[in-house]
Each structure stands twice: as structure tokens, then as C-alpha cells.
Design a protein around this nucleic acid. Structure first.
Lengths: 127, 127
DNA sequence: ACAACTTATATGACACGTCATTGAATGACA
DNA sequence: TGTCATTCAATGACGTGTCATATAAGTTGT
């Protein structure tokens, strides 16, 4: 037991957990209180905002986040209900969906992104 | 917009999220299927196993993990019900609790730790 | 054109974490 | 010693994530 390499691995893991939770928590609280959206919601907005091109996105977005398909679906649903995003069915494959920011979504994202980056800098900057 | 420093921060954050979720997921699945405990359960076992000394632990443990007090309480409850840990009230401060591994708990921890370290090595090793 | 299979998204049941609160014990101090 | 504030742990309500599955649309082979 107590192999020093193992200890180091465990420390590395715990330290990652700590910064992960701290950062995520800070983001969550800030976004929630200032913009009324959760962190995952923001992350989807961010991804959609980022991909200016057109594609049957829902699917592709899934490839760019560790989120489950099911989780994504629900987050998008909330964003839709909040009027921040719109889902439009894809002409060439009617199983898929285009995602698009609404004006409100774009505006909110623009502001929230500032806060988001600032907090990342605060929490990850030192690393 | 699109400040390169910001982009880099975001990339750093996403990459952290990805390795965090991948690793946590792998640990979760392995521990669940082989030992019937979740990752958080294991982490508490691990912390208790680690602190051989006696102290009114519940509280101190909280200082060594990003878990909430409430979360801890529930995890410990599950571990107790599973017979892996025992809670004993602290003589000098009857609000606090001593945590102690049962024999079953110790045995399970010993085996699970091997798996745990191996998966950490697999997932974090390359970093 | 018809089965059988695969792929894209949605949904329901369930587990777990969070927040706010409670209950109990302790501390402080007049 | 009696009151008030503080600390430790547990609990209930609630939100969100996961897994398994459903629904619908596309694909393939005959």
C-alpha cells in the first residue's frame, strides 16, 4: 500500500475535483443570480453562439461536450421554453434539429460570456 | 470578442470538464459494477481509511473534499446502511460523530482502491 | 415497395446533490 | 444560571442528470 505514485495520482485527482467544483460552483451561482440561467444552459448557448455555420446541430453539439444526449435534450428544452434558443427542423433530415439563438438569447449570451470568462480567469488563471 | 486569451481559457476549462467527466464516469461505472458502491461512497471510504487517527471526523472530512455537508451526511448514511462504516457519537462533543470503517468496509476499500488507482492512472496518467 | 436495422431526439422513472431549515449540543457572557 | 448565538449533523423539497426506452425518420437489401 501507500505507493508514492498512487498517492500522487490521488492528490492530482482530488486537486482536479476541487478546482472543478469550485469553478463550476462559482460560475453556477453567478450565472444563476445575474442572468437566471444555469451553467449547463450557458454552455449550450456558448456552443451555439460559437458555431455560426449551419448544420443539424443538436447532434454535432453533443460531440463537443461531455453532456449526455438526454441531458442536452433537456437543457435545450429549457432554453427553448425560456425563449433563448429556437429549434427548427432540418429539411434534409427531419430527425435532426437546427438550433439557433433568439435575439434575447444572443443578448444574454453576450453579457453572460463576459462574466463567465472573468470567473474562469479568476479560478483557472493561476493554474 | 474572440480575445485569444479568452479562447484559451475556455479551451482549458472544457478540456478539464472532459477529463473530469470521463474519469469520474469510468470510476463510477467500475466501482458500481464490481463493488456496488458509487464514486462518492468510495471517496468517503478512502478518506476515512486514510485518517488512522481519532478525531470527531464528520466535520474534518468535510474540509478535505469539495462535497457539501449535506451531501456528506447522506453518503455517510448510505455507507452506514450498507454496513461499511459506523458512526459513533463523540464523547467530548456530542454534536459530532466519529466515523470508522467496519471490517467489511475495510475489506471492500482495500479491493476497490486497487481498481480506483488503476483507473486514475489510465485516465490521468497521460496528462 | 417492404421488412429489418440504424440514427436523431424526447421522455419517464429514478438517484443524487443542493439549499434551507431543524434539532440538538456547546459556548459566551451578564 | 439563564439567555442568545453558534456549531454539528440530519432532513425535506426540489432541480437536474442518467439510464432505458419510445417515437419518428432515414437506410439497406431483396
Amino acid at each position: 500500500m501507500a505507493k508514492p505514485q498512487d498517492r500522487q495520482l490521488v492528490e492530482q485527482w482530488r486537486s482536479m475535483q476541487t478546482t472543478y467544483f469550485q469553478t463550476a460552483g462559482a460560475l453556477e451561482r453567478a450565472l444563476e443570480s445575474k442572468f437566471n440561467i444555469g451553467l449547463t444552459e450557458f454552455e449550450i448557448l456558448d456552443l451555439v453562439a460559437e458555431s455560426a455555420d449551419a448544420a443539424c446541430r443538436m447532434k454535432q453539439l453533443g460531440e463537443r461536450t461531455p453532456m449526455t444526449q438526454s441531458a442536452m435534450s433537456k437543457v435545450v428544452d429549457r432554453l427553448d421554453k425560456a425563449g433563448l434558443i429556437s429549434r427548427q427542423s432540418c429539411e434534409d433530415d427531419r430527425r435532426s434539429l437546427y438550433l439557433e439563438l433568439t435575439d434575447a438569447g444572443r443578448a444574454l449570451h453576450r453579457q453572460a460570456a463576459v462574466e463567465h470568462r472573468a470567473l474562469l480567469r479568476e479560478n483557472l488563471g493561476k493554474v
